[in-house]
Lab assay of single mutants.
Amino acid sequence: LELTLRVGDKTWHFKDVDEEFVRHLEELLKRGAHEREIEEIIREWLR
């Protein structure tokens, strides 16, 4: 999967994204996660 995600003024483009990561992001967005929380999840995933 490829994913382009825009949060606030930042845009990330990922290739070979894990479906579990996408589901986790979807859940965060559904519950109205704040920009900082989403950025933290992305940084963790990139490690």
Results as ranks from 00 to 15, higher is better:
Leu1Pro: 15
Leu1Thr: 09
Leu1Asp: 14
Leu1Glu: 14
Leu1Gln: 10
Leu1Ala: 08
Leu1Ile: 09
Glu2Ala: 04
Glu2Phe: 06
Glu2Leu: 04
Glu2Asn: 15
Glu2Val: 04
Glu2Asp: 15
Glu2Trp: 12
Glu2Lys: 05
Glu2Pro: 02
Glu2Met: 05
Leu3Tyr: 07
Leu3Asn: 03
Leu3His: 08
Leu3Ile: 15
Leu5Arg: 00
Leu5Ser: 00
Leu5Met: 06
Leu5Tyr: 02
Leu5Asp: 00
Arg6Glu: 11
Arg6Ala: 10
Arg6Thr: 15
Arg6Ile: 15
Arg6Leu: 10
Arg6Gln: 15
Arg6His: 14
Val7Arg: 00
Val7Ile: 14
Val7Asp: 01
Val7Met: 06
Val7Ala: 02
Val7Trp: 05
Val7Gly: 00
Val7Ser: 02
Val7Glu: 01
Val7Phe: 05
Val7Asn: 02
Gly8Ala: 03
Gly8Lys: 01
Gly8Phe: 02
Gly8Glu: 01
Gly8Pro: 00
Gly8Cys: 03
Gly8Tyr: 02
Gly8Asp: 01
Asp9Glu: 09
Asp9Ala: 04
Asp9His: 04
Asp9Pro: 02
Asp9Leu: 03
Lys10Glu: 06
Lys10Gln: 08
Lys10Ala: 05
Lys10Ile: 15
Lys10Pro: 00
Lys10Arg: 08
Lys10Tyr: 09
Lys10Gly: 02
Lys10Asn: 08
Lys10Met: 09
Thr11Ile: 15
Thr11Ser: 05
Thr11Gln: 05
Thr11Asp: 07
Thr11Leu: 12
Trp12Glu: 00
Trp12Phe: 12
Trp12Asp: 00
His13Tyr: 15
His13Ala: 03
His13Lys: 06
His13Ser: 04
His13Asp: 02
His13Pro: 01
Phe14Cys: 02
Phe14Arg: 00
Phe14Ala: 00
Phe14Ser: 00
Phe14Gln: 00
Phe14Lys: 00
Lys15Glu: 07
Lys15Arg: 10
Lys15Phe: 10
Lys15Thr: 10
Lys15Ala: 08
Lys15Met: 09
Asp16Ser: 14
Asp16Tyr: 13
Asp16Cys: 09
Val17Leu: 03
Val17Met: 04
Val17Tyr: 04
Val17Pro: 05
Val17Glu: 15
Val17Ser: 15
Val17Trp: 03
Val17Arg: 06
Val17Asp: 10
Val17Thr: 15
Asp18Phe: 03
Asp18Glu: 08
Asp18Tyr: 03
Asp18Trp: 01
Asp18Met: 02
Asp18Ala: 08
Glu19Val: 15
Glu19Tyr: 15
Glu19Lys: 14
Glu19Ser: 14
Glu19Ile: 15
Glu20Leu: 13
Glu20Ile: 12
Glu20Gln: 13
Glu20Ala: 14
Glu20Trp: 14
Glu20His: 12
Glu20Cys: 04
Glu20Val: 13
Phe21Trp: 07
Phe21Thr: 04
Phe21Gln: 04
Phe21Ser: 04
Phe21Asn: 02
Phe21Asp: 03
Val22Gln: 02
Val22Thr: 03
Val22Met: 05
Val22Leu: 03
Val22Ile: 06
Val22Ser: 01
Arg23Ala: 08
Arg23Asn: 09
Arg23Gly: 07
Arg23Trp: 07
Arg23Asp: 05
His24Ser: 10
His24Arg: 10
His24Ile: 12
His24Asn: 11
Leu25Asp: 00
Leu25Lys: 00
Leu25Ala: 03
Leu25Ile: 10
Leu25Thr: 02
Leu25His: 00
Glu26Asp: 08
Glu26Gln: 14
Glu26His: 13
Glu26Trp: 09
Glu26Pro: 01
Glu27Cys: 05
Glu27Pro: 02
Glu27Ile: 08
Glu27Leu: 09
Glu27Lys: 12
Glu27Arg: 08
Glu27Met: 12
Glu27His: 11
Leu28Trp: 05
Leu28Thr: 05
Leu28Pro: 01
Leu28Cys: 04
Leu28Tyr: 06
Leu29Ser: 05
Leu29Gln: 07
Leu29Glu: 03
Leu29Asp: 02
Leu29Pro: 01
Lys30Tyr: 10
Lys30Leu: 11
Lys30Phe: 11
Lys30His: 10
Lys30Asp: 08
Lys30Asn: 12
Arg31Ile: 09
Arg31Asn: 13
Arg31Pro: 02
Arg31Gly: 13
Arg31Thr: 10
Arg31Asp: 10
Arg31Ser: 12
Arg31Ala: 14
Gly32Asn: 07
Gly32Pro: 04
Gly32Lys: 05
Gly32Cys: 05
Gly32Ser: 06
Gly32Trp: 03
His34Phe: 04
His34Asp: 15
His34Tyr: 07
His34Ala: 14
His34Leu: 09
His34Lys: 14
Glu35Gln: 13
Glu35Ala: 09
Glu35Trp: 13
Glu35Arg: 05
Glu35Asn: 08
Glu35Lys: 05
Glu35Gly: 05
Glu35Ser: 09
Glu35Phe: 10
Glu35Asp: 10
Arg36Ala: 14
Arg36Tyr: 12
Arg36Leu: 13
Arg36Cys: 04
Arg36Gln: 13
Arg36Val: 12
Arg36Phe: 10
Arg36Asp: 14
Arg36Ile: 12
Arg36Ser: 15
Glu37His: 08
Glu37Thr: 07
Glu37Arg: 06
Glu37Gln: 11
Glu37Gly: 03
Glu37Tyr: 11
Ile38Asn: 01
Ile38Pro: 01
Ile38Asp: 01
Ile38Arg: 02
Ile38Val: 12
Ile38Leu: 09
Ile38Cys: 05
Ile38Glu: 01
Glu39Arg: 03
Glu39Leu: 07
Glu39Phe: 05
Glu39Cys: 06
Glu40Phe: 09
Glu40Gln: 11
Glu40Lys: 13
Glu40Val: 09
Glu40Ser: 10
Glu40Ile: 09
Glu40Gly: 09
Ile41Asp: 04
Ile41Trp: 14
Ile41Pro: 00
Ile41Thr: 11
Ile41Cys: 04
Ile41Asn: 06
Ile41Arg: 08
Ile41Phe: 15
Ile42Thr: 01
Ile42Lys: 00
Ile42Ala: 02
Ile42Gly: 00
Ile42His: 06
Ile42Cys: 02
Arg43Gly: 10
Arg43Pro: 02
Arg43Thr: 13
Arg43Leu: 15
Arg43Lys: 15
Arg43Ala: 11
Arg43Met: 15
Glu44Trp: 06
Glu44Tyr: 05
Glu44Leu: 07
Glu44Gly: 08
Trp45Gln: 06
Trp45Leu: 07
Trp45Asp: 02
Trp45Pro: 01
Trp45Ile: 04
Trp45Asn: 06
Leu46Asn: 06
Leu46Lys: 04
Leu46Gly: 06
Leu46His: 11
Leu46Thr: 06
Leu46Gln: 11
Leu46Ser: 05
Arg47Ala: 14
Arg47Phe: 11
Arg47Tyr: 08
Arg47Leu: 10
Arg47Val: 14
Arg47Thr: 13
Arg47Asn: 13
Arg47Ile: 12
Arg47His: 13
Arg47Met: 11
Arg47Trp: 07
